Simulated scan of single mutants.
Amino acid sequence: MHNRGWRSIYCVTKRDAFRSTAPINLTDRLHQVLHWATGSVEILFSSNNALLASPKMKFLQRIAYLNVGIYPFTSFFLIVYCFLPTLSLFSGQFIVQTLIVTFLAYLLIITVCLCLLAILEIRWSGIELEEWWRNEQFWLKGGTSAHLAAVLQGLLKVVAVIEISFTLTSKSAGDDNDDEFADLYVVKWTSLMIPPLTIMMVNMIAIAVGVSRTIYSVIPQWSWLLGGVFFSIWVLAHLYPFAKGLMGRTGRTPTIVFVWSGLIAITISLLWVAINPPSANSQIGGSFSFP
C-alpha cells in the first residue's frame, strides 16, 4: 500500500479493536518470533524490499521497512557480544589492554545514551522497570536463537533453494490439569534452545577457568579477572529466566542439576590448569618478566 502511494495513520480506539492469545511458554514464544523473523528475511530478499520500492514511498518509510528486514541479522553481532567475555577469561587477556581516557569517555557516553534510551522506552510505553527488563532478557534469548535460525533459513532458501523448517516437539501439559498456567512450566525441547544453552554453559565454564587461573598465578591480577567476570555475569543475568525455565516448576528444581553443573565446571577448570599450567612469569592480563 505504501509502495503505491497510500497514506496510513495509527488509530487507537477506546476499546481494543482486536485481541488474541499470546504464547504462554518459552518454546511457543520462540516459535512465534521465528515466524516473524523468517518473514522479515524473506521480504528483504524478495522484490518487495524497500530498496526496490517505487518513488512514491517516502525516505523514512524506506528506513522503517529496511529496519524490519535487517534486524534478524543483528543475531551475529549479539552472539559475538555474548562470547566475547569468555575469550577474555579463557585467554587470560582482558578485552581492553589499556584503559585510556578516550576509551573511558566513549564508554561513558554510550552508557549514558543507553540509559536515556531505556528511560524513554519505559516512559513512552508506560510499563514498569521490571517488565522492561524481562523484555530485554527475552530479546537476548530470541536474538541468539530464533533470529539466527531465521537468517540461516532465509539464506538457504535464497542461495541453495532449500526449505528448512525447525520443528518443535510438544509435550503434555503435565499432571496439574486444574492449573490454567500448567503449560507455562512445561519444557518443550527445540533446537532453538541450543544457542542460548551453549552461551550460558560456556560463560559459566569461562568464569571457573578464569578464577582457577588467577588463584594459581604467581602474581594474581584480580582487577583483570573482575572485569571479565562482570561481563560474563551480565550475559548470564539476561539468560537467568531461560535457565530457570529449563529447571521446571518452582519447587521442583532438581538439585542434581546444580551438582552436575558445579562438578563439570570444576572438572573443566582443573583440566585447563593441568593442560596449560601457568608459568612462573605469567599473570592474567599480560606477561610479567623478572629482572
Rank of each mutant, 00 (worst) to 15 (best):
I9E: 15
D176C: 09
A274S: 15
R213E: 11
A50I: 09
G69Y: 05
I266K: 06
F258L: 07
F73R: 01
T21D: 02
E130L: 15
V257W: 05
T144F: 03
L66K: 03
N276G: 00
I127V: 15
I109Q: 10
L226D: 05
A17D: 04
L30R: 05
L26R: 14
K157R: 09
V159Q: 00
S46Y: 12
Y240P: 00
W133K: 01
F258Q: 04
T253W: 14
Q153P: 04
M193F: 15
T13A: 14
A149W: 06
Q61N: 10
H147V: 00
L168T: 14
A37S: 10
S54L: 07
N25C: 13
E180C: 03
F76E: 03
F94I: 06
W189F: 15
G174D: 03
R134L: 04
W234T: 05
V151F: 09
S91G: 14
M247E: 07
L168Y: 04
L51N: 00
A37H: 14
D16V: 09
T13H: 10
N177K: 09
W272E: 12
F231G: 00
I284S: 01
V218E: 03
L114N: 09
N203A: 04
I162V: 15
R4V: 01
A173F: 07
I266E: 06
N3R: 05
A265S: 10
L168R: 11
T198G: 01
L114V: 06
V151C: 12
L120N: 06
I110N: 12
S261T: 03
L263Y: 02
M193L: 15
R123D: 00
C115T: 05
P254W: 10
L140K: 09
S125K: 13
A64L: 07
N203F: 08
Q93F: 14
E42G: 02
L26E: 13
K141T: 12
K244W: 08
F181P: 01
A237C: 05
P195S: 01
V96R: 11
I110L: 15
Y71R: 12
T111W: 05
Q283C: 15
E130V: 15
L197T: 01
M1T: 13
N67V: 01
S91M: 11
G69K: 05
Y240H: 09
W133V: 04
L263E: 03
A105M: 12
I219Q: 09
Y81E: 01
F181E: 11
L44T: 08
R4P: 00
I122A: 07
N177F: 06
L60W: 09
M204Y: 12
V187C: 05
T250C: 07
K58V: 07
V112A: 13
G39F: 08
Y65H: 11
W124H: 08
G228W: 04
L84E: 06
G154W: 04
G5D: 00
S217R: 05
R249Y: 13
D179P: 10
L44D: 03
S54D: 09
